[in-house]
Write a protein that binds this DNA or RNA. Structure first.
Lengths: 133, 133
DNA sequence: ATCAATTGCGTTATGCTATAACGTGTGGCA
DNA sequence: TGCCACACGTTATAGCATAACGCAATTGAT
C-alpha cells in the first residue's frame, strides 16, 4: 500500500492535481492529460483510486472532485480524520486535522455502538482572501 | 421558506423517503413513483430541492442519496450542523446534533478567517445491530 | 531463466447522477 | 384584469463513475 513508486499514469494525475489551484473533477483531469495519451475516464479513475489509497490525494464528496494532499508530512493510508474548508469563490481547499474533532466524533460514535470506517468533514464557504475583497 | 403546505409531488417524495429504511437515490425515488405519474428526474429533483430547503430531507453527499429527517422537533432551514452515521450494511442513518462539534468547527474556521456556509459531516461504518451479528 | 500470479493498462460500452431550457397552468393580489 | 411568482411536465443534454474484456509489464519464488 505504500506509495513506493508511482506508475506513469499515477504520476501524471498527481502532477495535474498538484499544479491545480482548486479541486479537479476526474473528467477535467482527463482533458488536461489528453496530450499525454489519456483517452478514457478509467485511466484517471484508476490512478485516483490508488493515489487516494496512498493518502496523497483526497476526494471531496460534496464536490465530486479531487485535490492533492497538502499535509506535507507522513503520507500513508489516512491515520486521522481530515476536515476540509472549501472556498466557493476561489476553490482553495485547506486541510484541517484536529484531534478534538476526531475524539468527539469517536465518542459520539461509540455511544451509539457505531463503528466508524471513514469520516467525511467538509465545510463550504468563503476564505479570508475572498471575503476581504 | 416555511413548509406551509407541501405540493403533491413534494408530499409523494417525502412519503417515499419516510417509508424507506435506507437513503434513496433520486432515480430510485423516481422508479417508486412511476405509478403515481412521475416520469422524469426533474420531478424528483425539484421536490427534493424544496424539501431540503425546508429541512425535512437531508442529502448525503458521500452517497448521492437522500433521507427523510428523523429529528422530530423543529423543522426549518437548518439551524445547526448535523452529523450522520451511516451503516454500510443495513443502510440505517442516524442523525447526530452536537454543539461541541459545531463550536469546534466554528473555532477552527474562524481561526483561518473562513466563513462557513454549509457543513457536511458523514461517518460511514457499521451500526450496533450489524456489528453484533 | 522461467513460469505463475499480480497488477497496471487500454478500450468499448454502459449506467448512474444532475441540470438546462422551454412552455403550460394556477393562485394570489394590486 | 392583468401581472407575478411558482410549481409542473417534457425533452434533451451534461457530468460523474464503473463493468467487462483482453493484453502487457512486473514481481518473485523456484
Amino acid at each position: 500500500m505504500e506509495p513506493r513508486k508511482l506508475t506513469r499514469n499515477q504520476a501524471l494525475v498527481l502532477e495535474t492535481l498538484t499544479q491545480a489551484e482548486a479541486p479537479l473533477s476526474a473528467y477535467t483531469i482527463l482533458d488536461k492529460l489528453r496530450d499525454h495519451g489519456f483517452r478514457a475516464p478509467l485511466q484517471v479513475y484508476r490512478a485516483l483510486e490508488k493515489l487516494t489509497e496512498f493518502g496523497i490525494v483526497h476526494r471531496l464528496e460534496s464536490l465530486n472532485a479531487f485535490v492533492a494532499c497538502t499535509h506535507p508530512h507522513d503520507h500513508g493510508p489516512e491515520k486521522g480524520v481530515i476536515a476540509f474548508a472549501i472556498c466557493e469563490d476561489c476553490g482553495q481547499v485547506s486541510e484541517i486535522s484536529d484531534p478534538e474533532i476526531e475524539d468527539r466524533l469517536a465518542l459520539l460514535a461509540t455511544r451509539r455502538r457505531f463503528t466508524t470506517e471513514k469520516t467525511t468533514i467538509e465545510m463550504r464557504g468563503h476564505c479570508g482572501n475572498c471575503t476581504a475583497a
